[in-house]
Write a protein that binds this DNA or RNA. Structure first.
Length: 278
DNA sequence: CTCAGTGTTCAGTG
DNA sequence: TCACTGAACACTGA
């Protein structure tokens, strides 16, 4: 589920359910990979009896502030979901499976039950999600090393242009770099390059100021819109590349009838439109 | 059976 | 030391 808008949706769901509530029961999987080496009993001890005073996000990480430290920090990895009873985690358009509302969910890694009987869970089928406990998430790695969050900490267009033009990486790679922008993942990077008409292989330092500004405008528009519709893909504008980028179909076309090409760039499948992106 | 895949980390290179 | 690239990681579902 997880680029910035999907993680923001997860944050809101957790806040709706858990903000101000006390944790009466914490179920933690015995999975040292996901829990970064922490034993389930230890994780449970950090959580049980605590009150949740805030739920925050930066980039693709979100965390709960509790009335005692340390606090749990969550990352959904490639396939993690936040779920609540009767609420299906949002899926990508590439994923045609039926909605899964089983409770407790398959692949659950953590489940918190609150003092008003509300509950939520986080799943991770492929075990690339992470749950860590930190005293001060904002000041510790990896969150401390993140670049700006484009929803909550967007720089000015001038500042963004300055930051962009002094980088030499190819654009696709730079947009995916969490030290540069926090929260942009594979589909958002492709969407930004498509909307701003930039070839994914262009070096950042080769962009003209107007081109850099186009990337900025697209970044703001895509992130704000995707979050405004709560990451509900069906409500993304029809003109977005998003709807047509899945499946690597040889005959894929944009809404304007332009050819969509698929190449591996920066190690990731990149959907782009040679006719439009120069 | 093979392979792609919403992500991060780390070793290696220039 | 820095910026950047590409492979490795674990596992499911198509």
């Amino acid at each position: 589920m997880p680029e910035l808008p999907e993680v923001e949706r997860a944050r809101r769901l957790v806040a709706d359910i858990a903000l101000g509530r006390r944790i009466v029961h914490a179920e933690c999987a015995d999975d040292p990979l996901v829990f970064d080496g922490l034993a389930p009993g230890q994780a449970r001890a950090f959580l049980k009896g605590r009150r949740i005073t805030a739920v925050r996000r930066r980039g693709k990480y979100f965390w709960c502030e509790l009335d005692r430290r340390p606090w749990p920090v969550f990352h959904l990895g490639m396939t993690g979901h936040v779920r609540a009873p009767g609420i299906d985690g949002l899926r990508l358009s590439s994923d045609a499976r039926e909605p899964d509302t089983a409770w407790p969910p398959r692949y659950g890694k953590i489940r918190l039950v609150l003092d008003d009987d509300g509950e939520w869970a986080m799943t991770s089928a492929r075990r690339w999600a992470r749950i860590r406990f930190q005293k001060n998430p904002l000041d510790e790695q990896p969150i401390a090393g993140l670049g700006f969050d484009p929803l909550t900490d967007l720089p000015s267009a001038g500042e963004f242009t300055r930051l962009l033009l002094r980088r030499r990486a190819v654009m696709k790679s730079l947009l995916l770099n969490q030290h540069f922008i926090a929260g942009v993942g594979n589909w958002i990077a492709d969407e930004l390059l498509y909307q701003s008409r930039i070839n994914p292989l262009r070096r950042a330092s080769s962009l003209s100021p107007p081109e850099a500004r186009r990337v900025y405008i697209a970044l703001r528009a895509v992130v704000q819109k995707a979050c405004a519709v709560n990451a509900d893909k069906q409500r993304f504008p029809r003109t977005w590349l998003y709807h047509r980028r899945w499946g690597r179909r040889a005959d894929a076309q944009t809404v304007r009838g332009e050819e969509i090409r698929f190449d591996t760039i920066a190690g990731r499948t990149t959907a782009w439109c040679p006719q439009r992106q120069v």
